[in-house]
Design a binder for these strands. Structure first.
Length: 223
DNA sequence: TGTTGATCATGT
DNA sequence: ACATGATCAACA
């Protein structure tokens, strides 16, 4: 049978909605994974578990989780007031100017944020978080509104322009209204090639694009 | 106590 | 080293 893209997306959404109410520890059992007691050494497990259960296909490529559907899955930890507890990683921020294409609509970031299946993970007591305490909330689909897209695009262009001008080292987390650039590495000693303002090669810490909590809060309030 | 900067795990 | 999944934890 041939399903339309919309139908395939809806099947994934229904699967996600069916996870509502389970703890992540229960879902670990269902997936045959032994749930770690704390998340210090399993920071990405929440997301990877959901991806596995929903059948994501992108693996570690710079593509949405379902490349053919242009659909990205994001788990987001929230407290009982529906407030996000963490920022949301989107994708790598390339710091080598020659590798940066100044075309928002051709960017990895745009492809990843154009359609997201959000899956809130309820953290009843943020001071005592664990996979056993985390409860899956209500999954929902989101596309940026025209206003949201304008804000994202503006930040992306500002930040990308700085990178193109060889200012990777000057871009701190403070820049951007809805997006921000922060370190994204195994540790602070990791390096990747970049250029300074004079066009000279330098080594700098790898960075990534993140959605600010104020922005994801707005998304959650719509739903 | 909220944010920024640092870090952990896995796969290519 | 890079890209994915993120959260941790030091400090302003």
């Amino acid at each position: 049978m041939n399903l339309t893209i919309e139908q395939e997306i809806n099947i994934i959404l229904q699967k996600a909605k069916n996870l509502r109410g389970y703890t992540l520890e229960q879902l670990c059992q269902a997936a045959g994974i032994l749930a770690p007691k704390h998340m210090t050494n399993a920071k990405g497990l929440s997301g990877q578990l959901i991806e596995y259960l929903l059948g994501a296909e992108a693996q570690s490529r710079p593509l949405p989780d379902f490349p053919r559907l242009n659909l990205e899955i994001k788990t987001i930890p929230i407290n009982l007031k529906q407030q996000p507890l963490e920022t949301t990683y989107v994708c790598t921020a390339h710091v080598l100017p020659t590798k940066v294409d100044y075309d928002f609509y051709a960017s990895t970031l745009y492809r990843k944020i154009q359609h997201i299946l959000w899956l809130p993970l309820i953290v009843p007591d943020p001071n005592h978080d664990s996979l056993a305490h985390r409860i899956v909330g209500n999954a929902f689909l989101w596309r940026p509104s025209p206003e949201q897209l304008v804000a994202i695009k503006a930040d992306w262009q500002d930040l990308t322009q700085m990178l193109i001008f060889g200012q990777a080292e000057q871009v701190t987390s403070h820049y951007g209204q809805v997006l921000q650039i922060r370190p994204k590495a195994s540790n602070s000693k990791m390096t990747t090639e970049s250029l300074n303002e004079r066009g000279e090669k330098i080594l700098t810490l790898p960075r990534g694009f993140y959605l600010r909590k104020t922005f994801t809060q707005e998304i959650l309030l719509q739903n």
